[in-house]
Simulated scan of single mutants.
Amino acid sequence: MSLKIERDTYKAAVQEAVLDHAASKGGVVGHTAAAISEAAHGKLPGTKGHHPIAAVVGTAITGGRKNAGTKGYLAAYLKQLEDNPLRTKMLTAGTLAGSQELLASWLAKDRNKHGNYFTSRVPKMATYGALVSAPLGHFLIWLLQKIFSGRTSLRAKILQILFSNLVIAPVQNTVYLVALSLIAGAKTFQQVKATVRASFWKVMRVSWITSPICLAFAQKFLPQHAWVPFFNLVSFIIGTYINTIAKKKRLTALRKRHFGEGRSSGGGSTVGGPRPGPGDYPPMGPNPPY
């Protein structure tokens, strides 16, 4: 027992000496080592010294040492929303849109021809989120808040929810479906129109169920500059689920077409050989070509 304590004490002393030596050298490495040494001894406000490197990185991300122990990640994010609203929303929406596509691909086992989940749609969705969805949402929510500025009565809140569902949601959903059709490979106006027509009311039904609840929650608990990221987060969760289901259905149809599912009129045999069982579909590797 005492031997272990002595060994740990010796190791800590050596580590401290190395860090102090690096700090004395100055520069980025020296300052970083000094910060890690400070965090390791629990001298960095808001930390206990258990994870010094993570503490230093987290402190740097959330505003530096002057904010250590006083501001968390959420507070730093909200401050960025206040100082740089559009830029922060663009980064948030782009990250969420790309992550949604990647997560849905993983959940649905939707791989590209190289067997990777990181398909070409991931950066395309991230671009859509950052350059289209976020600026559009920023403007529409600004318009909503502008129209109902200073109106806090129950009647005003109900009208705000109706305006959101009857004006804002249709615009956002239409733009979303147009972008999805283009990302999926639509080349002509008729293809885009067919996609929007086929999916618009399905998406609107989901919006009409979730939007009133989310907007009522935002009205009650969130500052106005946090509305768009909150709606983006809700959309991320719902969109991931819908995207996953859609991918699974598409992959099932592609596999059926790839392996042959048509029946001959004679004796129940399938075109192209016997009907494949569940084990015949490759669980790993790229999906059938499409």
Rank of each mutant, 00 (worst) to 15 (best):
V171C: 06
I238M: 07
L78P: 00
T62I: 02
P123L: 06
I147L: 15
W142K: 14
A97C: 12
V171H: 00
G239S: 08
L19I: 04
K43A: 15
K187M: 04
H31N: 15
V178H: 04
L91K: 06
Q160H: 11
G58S: 12
H41F: 01
Q224W: 05
G42Y: 06
A40S: 14
A12R: 08
G268E: 05
R275H: 08
K157W: 07
F221Y: 15
Y10E: 13
T92P: 00
L251E: 06
L215G: 11
C214T: 13
I242E: 07
I237M: 09
K124C: 10
S105N: 15
P212T: 07
V206E: 05
D280Y: 01
G94K: 05
G266A: 14
G129S: 09
S24I: 01
V228I: 07
A97S: 15
S269L: 08
T70P: 02
H114T: 09
H31T: 11
T62V: 08
A246I: 01
S153N: 13
Y290D: 14
P212H: 08
Y73C: 06
A130W: 12
G94D: 03
N243G: 04
I237W: 04
V18C: 11
E261Q: 12
G185C: 02
A169K: 06
N112E: 02
L182S: 03
A130Q: 03
F163M: 05
L180K: 06
N84F: 11
G115R: 07
T195P: 00
V57I: 14
L154W: 11
P289Y: 10
S199Q: 15
Y10R: 11
N243A: 14
A55W: 06
M1F: 10
E6T: 07
A39K: 12
A226D: 01
S207N: 15
K193L: 08
A186G: 04
F163Y: 15
G150Q: 10
T95E: 02
F230S: 11
L78R: 05
T252Y: 10
A218L: 08
S105W: 01
L102Y: 07
L166M: 06
L96K: 04
P274L: 07
T195Q: 14
H114I: 00
I61S: 02
G267F: 12
R197Y: 09
P289T: 05
V228F: 04
A75C: 01
R205K: 14
G58E: 09
F163H: 10
A216W: 10
S2P: 03
K89A: 04
Y77M: 02
P170R: 10
P52I: 06
K11Q: 13
T174N: 05
D8S: 11
